[in-house]
Amino acid sequence: MARAQYPGDEGAVPFVRRADEGDRFNMFGGLTFVKATGEETAGAYGLIEQRANAGMQTPLHVHHAEDELWVVVDGRLSVHVDGETMDVGPGDVAFGPRGKPHAFRVEEDASRYYIVRNAGGESFFEAVGDPAHDLSLPDPTPTDAQLERLNDVLETYELEILGPPPFEA
Results as ranks from 00 to 15, higher is better:
1 M>Y: 06
1 M>F: 14
1 M>N: 13
3 R>V: 02
3 R>A: 14
4 A>H: 13
4 A>T: 10
9 D>N: 13
14 P>S: 15
15 F>C: 05
19 A>L: 09
19 A>P: 02
21 E>P: 05
22 G>C: 08
22 G>M: 00
23 D>T: 09
24 R>S: 11
25 F>M: 11
25 F>G: 04
29 G>V: 06
29 G>D: 07
30 G>L: 08
32 T>F: 11
32 T>W: 01
32 T>P: 06
34 V>S: 04
37 T>E: 05
38 G>V: 04
38 G>L: 02
43 G>M: 10
44 A>C: 08
45 Y>W: 01
45 Y>A: 15
46 G>D: 03
47 L>V: 01
49 E>Q: 13
50 Q>A: 14
53 N>M: 01
54 A>V: 08
54 A>G: 09
54 A>F: 05
54 A>C: 04
55 G>N: 04
55 G>R: 01
58 T>H: 02
60 L>C: 07
60 L>S: 06
60 L>I: 08
63 H>I: 03
63 H>R: 08
64 H>Y: 13
66 E>N: 01
66 E>C: 06
69 L>E: 09
72 V>H: 10
72 V>K: 01
77 L>T: 03
78 S>T: 10
79 V>F: 06
80 H>F: 03
84 E>W: 00
85 T>C: 11
87 D>H: 02
92 D>S: 10
92 D>R: 00
94 A>S: 15
95 F>N: 14
97 P>E: 12
99 G>D: 12
99 G>A: 12
103 A>Q: 02
110 A>Q: 14
112 R>Q: 11
112 R>H: 11
113 Y>H: 08
116 V>G: 09
120 G>V: 00
120 G>M: 02
121 G>F: 04
122 E>D: 01
126 E>M: 10
128 V>G: 04
130 D>N: 10
132 A>S: 10
132 A>K: 06
137 L>H: 11
137 L>Q: 04
141 T>M: 09
144 D>S: 05
145 A>D: 14
148 E>M: 08
149 R>L: 09
151 N>Q: 15
154 L>R: 09
154 L>D: 12
155 E>D: 14
155 E>Y: 04
156 T>G: 02
156 T>D: 13
164 P>D: 15
164 P>A: 15
165 P>Q: 09
165 P>G: 05
166 P>W: 10
